[in-house]
């Protein structure tokens, strides 16, 4: 994907535990975390306002994992933190943040605060103040650098598809009020940052999650409940039938595309031909030979049954052996 900004190496940040290695940063946002953030925004802003636009600032904490060198961030969850904005100043409910984080930490001991999210349509001095809050102090990103995820969903008058932008705050040297010797500690005394955009991508946590998402996308909400509650054995091959239909439709549309484009000499057609030729031609046609397919499927089933049987037998043997040893010890 092309972007209008550049990100080569992580800039110099003021966090003491930041690695000195020159590497780029990347933020991975789990779909569940993104849903959480969008839900917070929609509940707080959209429900209170008929036009959907609001100047009220909504912020929250990003939670998840960071790599050892601090270049990879994995956002796994998020919660909202209340804040009150009056003029140029902002008051963040620190106590709520602390309690929510400690509660989360009990269930996810390996995860920590990565930074924060907001829904502003511009980066301003308040952004720097909030970033400063998350960059310093305990139960926040400190001693690692904080990241800032902005979800911009407002156009001038109306709503738009949320645009995700992630930033890291590079350090700016501040006024030195101390002794003449400039040490690292004296730099960045004020909440001053260069907000540099860094790449992000939305990822799904597991294949199961992805399947469920695809399923929810395929059918309407009214049918979802029916599907989830259905456990009738006669419907067990439903999934297979659906998948076969899907493959059939894909092949059909591919054939139609080929019919229209096979005489074209453009690079895209040649690339498609190369992909299809490399993967389909010179392959044993197992699928078209039904007898062979049936025998292979049976053989595969036999293998699975055999492995299950052997696993069960070995397990029983181990249990028996353990019982015998225990009995022998008693005597």
């Amino acid at each position: 994907m092309t972007t209008s900004y550049m990100h080569l190496v992580r800039p110099n940040v003021s966090a003491p535990a930041a690695s000195s290695a020159a590497s780029s940063c990347n933020v991975k946002i789990h779909t569940s975390a993104l849903f959480q953030i969008l839900e917070i925004l929609s509940k707080q802003v959209l429900s209170n306002n008929s036009s959907g636009t609001s100047s009220k600032r909504i912020i929250g904490t990003l939670l998840g994992l960071r790599s050892d060198d601090g270049s990879e961030f994995e956002v796994r969850d998020a919660f909202m933190v209340t804040c009150t904005e009056t003029g140029d100043s902002i008051a963040i409910d620190e106590q709520t943040h602390k309690q929510m984080y400690q509660l989360y930490k009990k269930a996810h001991p390996k995860e920590s605060v990565l930074g924060w999210f907001g829904s502003s349509n511009q980066v301003d001095s308040t952004t720097a103040l909030i970033h400063d809050f998350y960059s310093k102090g305990s139960d926040r990103s400190f001693p690692y650098p904080a990241i800032y995820l902005n979800v911009d969903y407002q156009s001038e008058q109306d709503l738009k598809l949320p645009e995700l932008t992630t930033y890291i705050g590079a350090a700016i040297a501040g006024q030195n009020n101390g002794p003449t010797r400039i040490g690292w500690k004296l730099i960045n005394q004020t909440s001053s940052y260069v907000f540099t955009p860094i790449p992000n991508q939305v990822i799904t946590k597991s294949i199961t999650e992805k399947l469920a998402l695809n399923k929810l996308n395929e059918i309407g909400p009214a049918q979802n409940e029916l599907l989830l509650s259905s456990s009738d054995s006669s419907k067990q091959l439903n999934h297979l039938t659906l998948q076969l239909q899907a493959v059939g439709l894909t092949i059909e549309s591919l054939l139609n595309y080929i019919k229209e484009h096979k005489n074209g000499n453009d690079d895209d057609s040649i690339d498609l031909l190369r992909l299809l030729s490399n993967n389909l031609l010179n392959r044993p046609q197992r699928l078209s030979n039904l007898e062979e397919l049936e025998s292979k499927f049976k053989a595969y089933n036999q293998d699975v049954i055999m492995i299950e049987y052997l696993t069960k037998a070995v397990k029983e043997q181990i249990e028996l052996s353990a019982r015998l040893t225990a009995e022998a010890d008693k005597k």
């Binding site: 076969l244 493959v247 059939g248 092949i251 059909e252 591919l254 054939l255 080929i258 096979k262 031909l273 299809l276 030729s277 389909l280 031609l281 392959r283 046609q285 699928l287 078209s288 030979n289 039904l290 397919l293």
Partner: peptide, 12 residues
């Protein structure tokens, strides 16, 4: 390629 795709579709 077309032939292989037709065969595949029929076998499904």
């Amino acid at each position: 390629v077309e032939k292989v795709l037709h065969d595949w579709k029929n076998s499904l």
